[in-house]
């Protein structure tokens, strides 16, 4: 299946990408993060467990145990700082 992954703010800059479509076998956010961390040291560091970032599926904040379905929009971003 294919999913869309979006990156914002610091993560968008560090990864040099704002949006991508990637093939993903059904699984959790944790499984997706594992795949992304495998892309290289920058990805592994920015998405390490110690780093502070949030994940949303279809615009709703979720935790790493949440399941991702085909066609989902997954967004990964740093803690928000608006207002």
């Amino acid at each position: 299946m294919t999913i869309t992954v979006l990156y914002f703010a610091r993560l968008r800059e560090e990864f040099g990408i704002a949006e991508e479509s990637i093939p993903f076998a059904a699984g959790t956010v944790a499984a997706l993060l594992d795949i992304l961390r495998g892309r290289g040291p920058e990805w592994a560091q920015q998405l390490s467990a110690e780093c502070n970032y949030r994940v949303a599926i279809n615009q709703k904040l979720v935790d790493v145990g949440a399941a991702i379905k085909a066609g989902d929009e997954v967004a990964i971003f740093p803690p928000v700082t608006g207002g």
């Binding site: 914002f8 703010a9 610091r10 949303a56 904040l61 971003f77 928000v80 700082t81 608006g82 207002g83």
Partner: peptide, 11 residues
């Protein structure tokens, strides 16, 4: 809640 949950980022 806006400050901690709404997806805005300041640079």
């Amino acid at each position: 809640f806006l400050k901690t949950a709404a997806p805005f980022w300041k640079k």
